[in-house]
């Protein structure tokens, strides 16, 4: 990581501290912001958060490793999560997954070579009345067909 990048990240994290405070209870909201912006929480980011909240970096890592939406390893710029739970499963989730895998040339759990997409399964997204459902980053899409899902992905920058 370049020094300028490090400085920028430090400034960014300090701005989150201003927004959420420097209590331990601010930790998850801060991690959320970093994750949203960078799609992962790098080791350097973890150290900075730990320093500013006055806790051990291992504690930050241990929290990240607990939550499905937080990760320390880089992922694609866009995270696609397809619901794998039963109501979506019964309404054709498998066909949607197959179509997306075919189109992107990757399997669930993988990231495209151009780093544009990471493909994952999610558990019930709370859209069971409109399945199959998926999320692209923080937006959700429902009543998917294989064609519709692929078309939605083609519109993502």
């Amino acid at each position: 990581m370049l020094v300028v990048e490090k400085n920028a990240l430090s400034d960014e994290i300090e701005s989150y501290i201003k927004k959420y405070g420097d209590d331990r209870s601010a930790l998850l909201m801060i991690l959320h912001e970093i994750q949203d912006k960078h799609r992962h929480i790098s080791e350097f980011a973890q150290q900075e958060v730990a320093r500013l909240l006055n806790i051990h970096p291992v504690e930050v890592y241990s929290v990240i490793s607990f939550f499905a939406f937080l990760n320390s390893n880089p992922k694609g710029r866009n995270i696609v999560r397809i619901c794998q739970t039963i109501s979506c499963d019964m309404h054709g989730k498998a066909d949607v997954v197959q179509a997306i895998e075919r189109e992107l040339g990757i399997k669930i759990g993988e990231t495209t070579k151009d780093n544009k997409f990471t493909l994952e399964y999610a558990n019930c997204l709370g859209l069971c009345d409109m399945g199959p459902a998926m999320a692209i980053n923080d937006q959700v899409y429902t009543k998917l067909t294989p064609e519709k899902a692929v078309e939605l992905l083609s519109k993502v920058k």
């Binding site: 558990n123 019930c124 859209l127 069971c128 009345d129």
Partner: peptide, 9 residues
């Protein structure tokens, strides 16, 4: 988060 629940949404 209970599978099949979406009333709170």
């Amino acid at each position: 988060g209970e599978p099949g629940t979406f009333k709170d949404r």
